[in-house]
Amino acid sequence: MPAKRIIPCLDVRNGRTVKGINFEGLADVGDPVELGARYAAEGADELVYLDISASKEERSTFTDLVRRIAERINIPFTVGGGISSVEDAARLLEAGADKITVNSAAVSNPQLITDIATRYGRQFVVVAIDAKEIDGVWRVTTHGGSRLTDRELFEWAAEVERRGAGEILFTSMDHDGTRNGYPDETYARLCASLSIPVIASGGAGCVDDIANVLDRGTADAALAASIFHYGEITINSLKRQLSERGIEVRL
């Protein structure tokens, strides 16, 4: 198996990296290209850039940004946010993105996964799944967890794989933002049910949380934002600590 990957996630709005503070307001945490380059130099294995722009004008800024990221960054990077058509994906591929991630649009139009994967290969498609546990059933949500769907996590993940996704980025909306760790058993079950890699997201508060989801949860990668942005822990230090716990990482 390849090394477990550590993936910083950068939310981008209007060309700047932003980070929510206690669900109110957004703090500017820097230039996305510079921040990405710094993370790459510190040992990030990949980067994820999410466009959280509100308007169409801001969206075109994002494509230009993707072009600048591609010129500068020497590791793979994924982009997402608002991708709802093959054309959106094509535009970002052309700008230099290695992978794209789709979420809500894939739930309302699963054919989108098939179409993008057929055209550009499964390595290009990361499907993000947000779910929350309700009465013992993991239900898929969309629009940042605000809308509950009829889909069940494991069935949807299997369909997504069948349709050509190259990876799944799973976030538990029950854990996201809590900094209390990930639902490790759910990750382990999800990983065992799929043959494509699973990236864990949302919930990391400390090194142990990440170690647990990679080890007990058997996730292939962990994605995190705030613990890196505010310099609570550097990527290099995190990876050294994971390595000391016997987890294979690229150092």
Binding site: M1, G166, S195, I196, P197, D220, R250
Partner: peptide, 15 residues
Amino acid sequence: TEQPGVKVPHMGWSP
């Protein structure tokens, strides 16, 4: 060959 614990594609960093 897909087998338990071996994912295909091989995607990521290997030495």
